[in-house]
Amino acid sequence: MSTGFVVLAVLMGAVTYPSRALPLLAPGLERLPAPVFAYLRLVAPAVLAAIGAVNVLLVGPRGRVGFHVGIEAAAVVVCLVLTLWRGNLLAGLVAAVAIVAVARAVGVG
């Protein structure tokens, strides 16, 4: 069984770990000024919304990415509404999966 790509995995891990660890391990972070904390508090909703939007609205291979509004976007909106209305993410996810699965089964998605 080949193991050559294990070395590549180690190197990829070596360039990934610092971006995960440096802010967590940097000393004195708790002494940052209040505006920085206010900024950091907003990072989570901004980056999660960006991840969701990018994953559902941009399609296509690297270098040929296009904008697409399909059944997947509608499913995410339904999940969002259900999560806000019922306070239950799992119910929203189940609804989103059901919408996409049914749409694909009937050839809409």
Binding site: A44, G52, A75
Partner: peptide, 13 residues
């Protein structure tokens, strides 16, 4: 669809 929907739902929360 679970991953993008979960990200948006968690952002809303």
């Amino acid at each position: 669809i679970v991953f993008p929907a979960a990200m948006v739902g968690l952002a809303a929360g």
